Amino acid sequence: MGEGSEPFNSEPDDLSWGEFGKLSLAYLRIPVALLVVELFYWFITQPTNTLGFIQESEAWIWYHLTELIYGSGSASLSEYNGWTTLVTLRHENFYYDQVRLYVSDECAGVHEMLFISVLIMMTTGVPQRLRIKSAIVACGIVYVLNIIRLIVLYPLAIDGCADNPNMLGCEQPMHDFHTFVYEWGFLIVLVIMWLIWFKWVNGGDRIKQEQLASENKWRFIYRKKWDPLQKTVMLSSILLILFSVIGVVIDDDAMEAKETKDMCEGLISDPVACGDANDKWAQEIQTAWSLATVGILGIAATIITIETEQSNSKSSVNEEG
């Protein structure tokens, strides 16, 4: 080669710290969003029957479909802790002819709805409106799948008690199925749902046309300019979340009530003391949940804003001027 030629660079230039930071944020924002949702879900489900209306609707549908599919008298619906969420499965082979189950806030399917919604909403390259519509449809599918899961419990309990009728715990296969679905089954289904949706939206000509034509009238963006009011709201929201956690941890009465509540579970104790402890702990958790919820909503409303085409054009004009 000639003397004036430049040497060949066999290795590409390293990423700058700025590029590395942007790349990290692009990959980490989904798990971070999931962690925030997990924190929010933990707070809203600490008080008993926080999602009471959803729990009652699922219990009502579960009961009526069980009666319709498996025959009259196969189930009954009654109240549990003030909410009509107790479904009692009935069969002659069950222990005392019945298996009592209730739809708790953990069994309502809201956790799964939040999970799939975050996956869909955090997927880049898809129009905002399509993501919102897809999340709504996905939540409906999760609701239906959860009802199907509840309906399947009855035949599983019957099969478990067929070989050992009228024995305590003969319906264990039903509980094993419930545990598997709760721990792994729904997670697998949700990931498959998201993969199918992801392939569908990327393969649709409508999405490409919408991106090229810039048909989105609005979208959620991270706030770039912070006014003193917004900074104050952010600081206040963070303090509310901290106070909600610290207020429970350092409260001696609350921690004593929790210890009493834990001792009462599964033991024959003073019902009055146990009831007072449950009420005290529930009240403390509800107070903490209220403060934390306000804080989380304040942070979300401060960080995220809505960008319209009009506001975007105005900002472009201001930058040019």
Rank of each mutant, 00 (worst) to 15 (best):
residue 315 S to I: 04
residue 221 I to L: 05
residue 285 I to N: 10
residue 110 V to H: 06
residue 258 K to E: 15
residue 272 V to Y: 01
residue 252 D to V: 13
residue 165 P to Q: 03
residue 313 S to M: 03
residue 301 A to I: 08
residue 45 T to S: 03
residue 46 Q to C: 15
residue 68 L to P: 04
residue 153 L to M: 09
residue 77 L to A: 00
residue 229 L to K: 10
residue 162 A to W: 07
residue 49 N to M: 03
residue 38 E to Y: 05
residue 247 G to H: 02
residue 151 I to Y: 08
residue 235 L to S: 15
residue 238 I to Y: 07
residue 271 P to T: 11
residue 301 A to L: 14
residue 126 V to Y: 04
residue 183 E to I: 01
residue 121 M to T: 00
residue 118 V to S: 01
residue 317 V to M: 14
residue 263 M to Q: 11
residue 143 Y to G: 02
residue 214 S to R: 08
residue 106 E to V: 14
residue 209 Q to P: 03
residue 201 V to F: 00
residue 163 D to E: 15
residue 152 V to W: 06
residue 245 V to I: 13
residue 41 Y to D: 06
residue 63 Y to W: 15
residue 182 Y to C: 00
residue 159 D to F: 14
residue 306 I to P: 08
residue 191 V to K: 00
residue 87 V to S: 05
residue 310 Q to F: 14
residue 54 I to S: 09
residue 131 R to W: 06
residue 215 E to P: 06
residue 41 Y to T: 04
residue 275 G to S: 07
residue 31 P to Y: 01
residue 171 E to P: 00
residue 259 E to C: 13
residue 306 I to W: 03
residue 319 E to Y: 10
residue 71 G to F: 07
residue 46 Q to E: 14
residue 274 C to M: 09
residue 27 Y to P: 01
residue 132 I to H: 04
residue 271 P to S: 08
residue 254 A to P: 04
residue 308 T to K: 01
residue 109 G to R: 02
residue 228 P to N: 07
residue 41 Y to G: 00
residue 231 K to R: 08
residue 223 R to Y: 10
residue 282 A to Y: 09
residue 93 N to I: 04
residue 184 W to T: 11
residue 91 H to E: 06
residue 110 V to M: 12
residue 112 E to T: 04
residue 283 Q to N: 05
residue 23 L to K: 06
residue 18 G to H: 11
residue 143 Y to F: 11
residue 204 G to L: 09
residue 83 W to P: 02
residue 93 N to C: 08
residue 176 D to T: 13
residue 12 P to I: 12
residue 176 D to F: 15
residue 177 F to M: 03
residue 280 K to H: 11
residue 210 E to P: 05
residue 242 L to Q: 07
residue 280 K to Q: 11
residue 290 S to N: 11
residue 278 N to C: 02
residue 15 L to E: 09
residue 253 D to Q: 13
residue 125 G to V: 04
residue 289 W to L: 02
residue 14 D to N: 13
residue 59 A to Y: 01
residue 166 N to H: 11
residue 222 Y to M: 08
residue 309 E to Y: 06
residue 168 L to Q: 14
residue 28 L to R: 01
residue 174 M to T: 03
residue 112 E to A: 08
residue 32 V to K: 02
residue 277 A to W: 00
residue 202 N to V: 00
residue 253 D to I: 10
residue 159 D to S: 15
residue 255 M to H: 05
residue 113 M to V: 07
residue 74 S to D: 02
residue 46 Q to N: 15
residue 282 A to S: 14
residue 206 R to S: 15
residue 287 T to K: 07
residue 305 T to I: 13
residue 122 M to T: 02
residue 318 N to L: 13
residue 169 G to C: 06
residue 131 R to C: 03
residue 242 L to I: 12
residue 277 A to L: 02
residue 143 Y to W: 08
residue 10 S to L: 11
